[in-house]
Each structure stands twice: as C-alpha cells, then as structure tokens.
Amino acid sequence: MDVYIGSILSAFATGLGALPILFFRSVTHKWRDILLALTAGIMVAASTFSLIPQALAISNMVVISVGVILGTLALTYLEYIVPHIDLQHTVVNIAMDAKSWLILSAITLHNLPEGLSVGVSYASEHQGLGPLIAFAIGVQNAPEGFLIALFLINQKVGKWKAFTLASLTGSVEIVSGIMGYHLTAYVSGLVPYGLAFAAGAMLYIVYKELIPESHGDGHAKAATLSFIIGLLLMLGIIQWLG
C-alpha cells in the first residue's frame, strides 16, 4: 500500500506545481533557476547518499556500475528518440496543435524512469528509502509542472485545461512506480540493480537538464547556492529518516 501512496503523492506534485498557473502566468528566470538548482541538489543527495549506498550494502561495485550505466543509457535513449524540449524558450502564442501534443507526450515519457525510481525504492528492505525518493522526485516534479502549465498557457490553452494537462503528465509515474515495485519485489536480485538504475537516471537528469537550465540565464551564483542548500536539505532528511 505504501508504494501506491508514495507514487501517487510524487506524481501529484506535478499538479501541485502547476497550481499557481491558475493565479498568475509568469515567474522570473531567477526564481526558476533557483528552484531548478534546489531540485538538482536534492536529487544528487538522494542518489549519492541514499540510493547508491543502499544498493552497495546489498551488492557490490560491479552491480552498482551496471545499474548506474543502464540508468544513464536508458535516459540517453529516451533523449534520442524523444528530443528534449526547452519549455522556457519554446515559441509562444501559437495554437495548440500536433506539435504541442508531441511536446506533452515527450514530457510524459521522460517521467517514466522517475516513477520507476520510486517503485524500486519501496521494494528495498530499507523502510525509509521509499518515502525519501518519493519526496525527491516530488520536489523535482513541482517546478516541472509549473513550466508545463506555463507553456500551455502560452499556446492559448485555458488555465484550467493547462492545469489539468500538466497534472496528467505526471500520472504515468504512478503506473511505472507500481510496475517497478512489483518487478523488483518478486525478483529480489533485481533490487540493487534497480536502485543503481534509479541513481543513474536521476544523476542524468541533474547533469543533462537541471544544472544547465539553472545556469542558462545569468543566475549561476544564486543557482549554485540553491543547489548546495538543496543538497544539505536532503542530507538532513536522510539523516532524520535514519
């Protein structure tokens, strides 16, 4: 039952992040960069101080290396077949068309590994790991949900429809989270591979997406400070959960 709750809550964060779009239509680049960098710090801490150590405790360096590389390759392949869309710099004020639906589909596909990360973490014998990773993914989903909704508003989509569509992009994480949990729960030998896979996928997102975007508009210092705060915040949560 816990994996269902965790997957739903982490996916729900996408809609929560999109909620402000009902009240205002913009946010400064500086605050976007700060939020993205904060998310990056949280995800780095979750990967390197929780996922990987947990996987290493029940396996070995070979398993960790294979899992991390597979996670990285999986995201690389997704990036290849569904090119990254920079929502902050996409052409605005065009009608909602096939291209817009393609962008939404791409974002939805990119959420699959995030859901798997949550599911695999709940399958681990470490009781606090599942909620921890669900929190980290949820934090990452919130600013993403806002940017998706903002993009849709710029495509002349109504506020409520934009909010609904942005929320639905995160729903795929519920399905992939439950799949990841049941797959690794019934094949125990896959758990360390799954944890390492999740770490590799999260680190890929951080380095390929979050850090470059948070440094792209001249707010590198504020973003760097935010990254460190995010990392320390997650370390504190890891320590608190034991």
Rank of each mutant, 00 (worst) to 15 (best):
G138H: 02
L150N: 12
T48H: 07
V187N: 14
V63P: 01
Y122P: 02
Y204W: 14
A55S: 02
F12K: 00
L152R: 11
M61K: 11
V187G: 09
L190A: 08
L116A: 08
A199N: 07
I69M: 03
S214A: 12
L56K: 12
S50M: 08
I229G: 01
A95D: 09
S167F: 07
S188H: 12
L22S: 00
I137D: 06
W31N: 15
A40E: 00
A149V: 10
T39N: 09
G158L: 05
N93E: 10
L231A: 15
E144Y: 09
L233E: 05
F24N: 14
I237L: 14
A134P: 06
H126E: 12
V172H: 13
S50V: 00
S65M: 01
V3N: 04
K161T: 13
Y193W: 02
V139T: 02
V191Q: 06
G15L: 10
S226N: 07
L195N: 01
F23A: 04
I21D: 07
F163H: 13
I69A: 09
I237M: 12
L51I: 00
L109E: 00
Q155M: 09
N111G: 11
I205P: 15
R25V: 13
S226F: 07
I8P: 05
Y4V: 15
F49P: 01
F163C: 12
K208C: 04
L225P: 05
A162L: 06
S100P: 04
G180I: 01
Q239S: 14
A123S: 07
A196V: 01
E144R: 07
D86H: 13
I34D: 06
E144I: 11
L36S: 06
A55D: 04
A201S: 14
S124E: 02
F12I: 06
L150D: 11
